[in-house]
């Protein structure tokens, strides 16, 4: 009967597979382990690895963060909090900015949500502390003096809101409408 033959075949195949499996694991015994021993050897991580979070600066060396609250809104563990404030020139900035790294799960959603490329994740993952409170990072701990992954982008050149100077000075903007002119 073909059925019987099939069953026999299946049993044989099964047995062969079983032996193959055991053989495979067995020869693994004699292979060199691929483990990299961490504190002695530190593996270079790709730049897009997601670990410690930084706040970057734009090419004008201004803080990029405008405290728009989008990162805190997107954070699934609510570990980001901040307070926005207005600078004398009308530029919006974070009066304080706090990330609780004891809660952070390094998912990177904040980086994705950030419209100004301010908040960025870095490959630096060695942040363990014995005291939880020392894992609460403030703005001064987070702020770096470079642009991170994108050095060129400057949000305020596209924003279309006045920071200083006249309106219409941003990229792809026309001169302000002259209200008093009645010319065609």
């Amino acid at each position: 009967m073909p059925g019987e033959k099939n069953r026999l075949l299946r049993v044989t195949e099964g047995l062969v597979a079983l032996i193959q499996g055991f053989w495979t694991t067995f020869i693994h015994l004699f292979r060199k382990p691929i483990t990299e021993e961490y504190p002695e050897y530190k593996r270079p991580l790709p730049p897009r690895s997601r670990a410690r979070i930084i706040l970057t600066r734009d090419p004008d060396f201004e803080e990029r963060c405008v405290a728009c609250y989008l990162c805190s809104a997107s954070c699934p563990v609510s570990c980001i909090s901040m307070q926005s404030a207005e600078r004398a020139d009308g530029r919006r900035y974070a009066a304080w900015f706090r990330i609780n790294f004891s809660r952070c799960i390094y998912c990177g959603l904040c980086e994705e949500a950030c419209p100004t490329l301010a908040i960025q994740l870095t490959p630096d993952f060695e942040t363990c502390q014995y005291d939880l409170l020392t894992l609460v990072a403030e703005k001064e701990d987070l702020l770096v003096d470079h642009g991170g992954k994108n050095q060129e982008y400057n949000y305020y050149r596209y924003a279309g809101v006045l920071v200083d100077g006249d309106k219409g000075g941003h990229i792809q903007e026309a001169r302000p409408v002259n209200l008093k002119s009645n010319l065609p």
Binding site: L29, P33, T35
Partner: peptide, 10 residues
């Protein structure tokens, strides 16, 4: 130990 060696670990 043995398991790790079977899995090419240390």
């Amino acid at each position: 130990k043995l398991l790790s060696r079977l899995q090419i670990r240390l």
